[in-house]
Design a protein around this nucleic acid. Structure first.
Length: 511
DNA sequence: ACTCCTTTGAAGAAA
DNA sequence: TTTCTTCAAAGGAGT
């Protein structure tokens, strides 16, 4: 039985999501694509000396920023076989990363040959990674097609792991193969595909240091997004950032360097973006000499050169409002917010739900969101103020970013979309008249056999019809509820689970 | 394909 | 100013 989190570690966040993957005896779960990264990092730090001697870093490692990035965390280097580590259990037919990749290009849900870019064969705990989550499907080539609805099914532990694997792999390629740009580009392309990221990085031709460095910055940004993608808004935003950067990178080199940035985007979330926070949370101690993180910096002020010193520029600095408009017209762009519906920013509880849903689901056998949400609601109330404050702060940033991205947007815009679904509008009194839960309310869950058929199907009650709601009062059970509208629901979510929810009058508005 | 369920919180509309 | 309504997310279930 998974264990509830009992402690927290501030520096890396999202600890809770990972603690659960441990058995009580401390061993990882068998399907442990869920990695307790924090504990790993702690162990890494504790055993640093030992591991360094047993597991030397790649020969290319140095004190340079890229090398520093590549050094995180040490233990992953042996899973990302760069040909340096002798102890790696080779599962694939290849003998170099590039060769291995060649055998790992079978995308989709079918079996894939083992190899270096097969996370299941990399991670010491992994046995059955949810590959289907890594393959969003057909997307425009070269497009940042990170798909939140799919990706979010991955838990934080998995995201981190895949993120690091991906980052290390691409970084290694940049570092070790920079003399062979053709192979390098191909490798990155294939690696990117292998990780389900389309040809995001494959379009690069990393021939020069500037592009290498800059691409690594980009990758790092992306990894942050992958890890901390609690916000659809942020995902959208970074998707556009990355798109924009790649548009630039495809241009001749000379057109990038020194290009004036008269179009500096006013919408860049310099204060509220995930960049610094993400890196801060993600950063390995060796990477935190610069509090902004290894590849992150505030965006340049308007009218400054976009890329003066690539190693110190953040990815967001290339996003322009004009280019956003241009992208909105791009036929392949999936920019729903530019073409139509802009969703509301998530509030604190929604962020909490997003964070914890998978955890609750894993603890219970239930999958029904309604029941899960009841549990989450209970837990939300049981949460201590500090924990809640974290989510309120996230929500605040979310709103601030949303305001920056969509200045003219109002929640009213999403009200009763013309002709589009959202037919839930129901006056409350009307809702009570037509409340489909009459039988449920009257008889309770214990006597479902007495419910009318529609009630059993969660549909409109036909026994206690509108206007004739009293017609069948004689059938009302001699209960003590008093109110027809109140519900006392005891839902034992899972007999194996300690969670038991008791909901009273759950339809009460929460104003 | 669409709606409902279920939760909390934010924002807008209505009283 | 207060109260009410809608919509954010999720995914199973029913129509």
């Amino acid at each position: 039985m998974p264990q509830l989190p009992t402690n927290s570690t501030e520096d890396l966040g999202a600890v809770d999501e990972m603690k659960e993957y441990k058995h009580e005896d401390g061993e990882e779960t068998e399907n442990g694509t869920h990695l307790d990264l924090v504990n790993d990092i702690k162990s890494d730090l504790i055993k640093k000396e030992t591991e360094n001697s047993e597991n030397p870093k790649p020969s290319g490692a140095s004190s340079a920023p890229i090398a520093q990035l590549m050094s995180f965390p040490d233990r992953y280097s042996k899973h990302l076989n760069t040909g340096v580590h002798s102890g790696y259990p080779r599962g694939g037919p290849g003998h170099t990363p590039q060769e291995d990749i060649k055998h790992n290009l079978h995308r989709g849900h079918g079996p894939r040959p083992a190899g270096i870019f097969h996370p299941a064969h990399h991670h010491p705990y992994a046995t059955a990674p949810p590959y289907q989550y890594m393959y969003p499907g057909n997307k425009p080539e070269g497009r940042f097609h990170f798909e939140p609805p799919i990706w979010k099914k991955c838990m934080y532990g998995e995201r981190k792991e895949y993120g690091f694997l991906f980052f290390r792999t691409v970084s290694s390629t940049f570092q070790t193969d920079c003399n062979d740009s053709q192979t390098n580009a191909k490798t990155i392309n294939e690696c990117t595909r292998s990780f389900g990221l389309g040809s995001l990085f494959g379009s690069l031709s990393p021939q020069c240091d500037v592009r290498q460095t800059y691409s690594l910055q980009l990758i790092w940004e992306l990894v942050n997004v992958l890890f901390w993608s609690w916000s659809r808004t942020l995902l959208d935003f970074y998707g556009r950032v990355i798109d924009e950067i790649f548009l630039k990178l495809r241009q001749p080199h000379s057109s990038i360097i020194g290009q004036p940035s008269s179009q500096y985007p006013p919408s860049y979330p310099s204060q509220v973006g995930p960049t610094s926070a993400g890196i801060q949370r993600l950063s390995h101690p060796t990477l935190t000499a610069d509090p902004r993180g290894p590849v992150c910096c505030p965006p340049p002020p308007p009218n400054q050169t976009v890329i003066r010193t690539p190693a110190t520029c953040g990815a967001g600095s290339l996003l322009t409002s004009q280019s956003i408009s241009a992208m909105a017209d791009h036929p392949g762009m999936d920019l729903a917010h530019l073409k139509g519906h802009i969703k509301k920013p998530l509030n604190a509880f929604m962020l909490y739900m997003k964070d914890m849903r998978s955890k609750v689901v894993s603890e219970c056998t239930l999958k029904e969101s309604a029941a899960i949400n009841q549990i989450l609601g209970k837990r939300w109330h049981a949460l201590d103020r500090q924990e809640q404050a974290k989510y309120y702060e996230m929500a605040r940033k979310e709103r601030a970013l949303h305001m920056q991205l969509y200045p003219g947007w109002s929640a009213r815009d999403n009200y009763a979309q013309q002709g589009k679904k959202k037919k839930r509008k129901r006056d409350k009194s009307q809702a009570e008249i037509t409340n489909p839960k009459k039988c449920r309310a009257r008889y309770g869950l214990d006597r479902q056999h007495e419910w009318c058929k529609p009630c059993r199907r969660k549909k409109k009650c036909i026994r206690f019809l509108a206007g004739g709601a009293d017609q069948d009062l004689s059938l009302s059970p001699p209960d003590n509820t008093g109110s027809l509208e109140s519900e006392n629901i005891d839902t034992n979510v899972d007999s194996n689970s300690p969670v038991m929810i008791t909901t009273t009058n759950s339809t009460t508005p929460t104003s």
